[in-house]
Design a protein around this nucleic acid. Structure first.
Lengths: 143, 143
DNA sequence: ATACTATTTTGTAATTATTACAATTTAGTT
DNA sequence: AACTAAATTGTAATAATTACAAAATAGTAT
């Protein structure tokens, strides 16, 4: 059940704790790029002793170990992602959904730019998602 | 003196106001990608009646009109840029400086990705800048 | 199994950035 | 000079995050 998350943590010499395992499981099962509040309020149901601060702490630790990735695209909150293969993200400014965008990008795996040591690369698109456009069209047609 | 900022605002049918002109001038003269606080505290000296809220309001309006650009790279605050040619950004996680990165990128001018309507494209690199690396090396050698 | 210690979790109290809002002022027009 | 919509201002809220200290726990050594 939790073997793969245990392995992930062990591989980074991190202690195996319930909050960390649950957060990893949550991210693995929800590809919604949730914010802290979403993770916290969902896990809190099954684990009432969970603290919001723990979610912050755990994510911070796992981010430092590159197990999870923090997206700053929204500008008002951090949103999280299991750190799998490199990919871009799209934020819908209408509904707030963040979607994975898999496109070729020659700059994604750079470790040096302009003489600076690069540790992270982020490609963000912002706009209106397919779904929200459909909704707006529908309303306009009906109105 | 302020002609070009006046023109920028006029071209977007925005009213010509002192706060807007001063903010544009500040951004034009400081390529530091400042946050609201930096802009506010600098302008406040010469214009004591300026309100922090006005800086927020002005930047919001000018961002909607694509006169300025908001960078969310830092994750804790918005940082601003005069919206000139498309380019990437590098954030130093040590000193917080944001630098322009001019590299070719085939995805920078996309208006559609995965069927979604794209209005903004951001390319962010995070890491340790040349200068901070130099400092760290120096200290270690001397220690 | 037990004891030990560093790490983690937890809850509360700050802090920081940003937004809401209502009153006043002002830009652009009549 | 008067008008009106928009912008500015200050204060009060809100939202996300961090600081901190006490309690609990994981992993290790005994």
């Amino acid at each position: 059940m939790y073997e793969k998350y245990v392995k992930l943590l062990k591989d980074h010499n991190l202690k195996i704790t319930s909050p960390r395992l649950e957060i990893l499981k949550y991210l693995d099962e929800h590809h919604t790029h949730p914010n802290v509040e979403a993770i916290y309020s969902s896990l809190k149901k099954k684990h009432p002793s969970l603290s919001r601060t723990t979610v912050y702490n755990s994510l911070e630790t796992m981010e430092k170990n590159r197990i999870v990735q923090s997206l700053t695209i929204s500008g008002s909150e951090h949103r999280y992602d299991l750190n799998k293969s490199l990919h871009h993200h799209f934020l819908c400014t209408r509904c707030g959904i963040i979607l994975d965008i898999d496109i070729a990008c020659p700059n994604m795996d750079k470790t040096l730019q302009g003489g600076h040591h690069v540790e992270e690369v982020h490609g963000y698109f912002k706009g209106i998602c397919k779904n929200c456009q459909k909704k707006e069209k529908g309303w306009r047609t009906n109105g």
